[in-house]
């Protein structure tokens, strides 16, 4: 279990699709994401809990969290 806890998720962002609405940044419960210009970027990957809220609320099919 300890190894599983250390394993980081893989947040895949499609920069061509992202329109910079910042919904994922605002709704992330652990503040993993941030806006860089008009596109979202990962700021603090260690904090990600794989809750998928960014994926669920992204209107543009631009972000997904893989294990």
């Amino acid at each position: 279990m300890a190894d599983a806890a250390k394993k980081l998720p893989n947040i895949v962002i499609n920069e061509k699709f992202c329109k910079g609405c910042s919904i994922c940044v605002d709704f992330c419960p652990t503040d993993v994401l941030e806006m860089r210009g008009t596109c979202v970027a990962v700021k603090n990957l260690e904090a990600c809990t794989r809750c998928q809220l960014c994926d669920l609320r992204c209107p543009d099919f631009a972000i997904q969290v893989f294990d």
């Binding site: 998720p9 329109k19 998928q52 209107p59 543009d60 099919f61 631009a62 969290v65």
Partner: peptide, 28 residues
Amino acid sequence: VSVPFDYNKYLRPNKLPHIWCPGCGHGI
């Protein structure tokens, strides 16, 4: 929940990204 849903099997990838404005709820 940690398994992401594969939307691409129901989408026409050559039509994306869609025309809706940034933040529009229709995509959700």
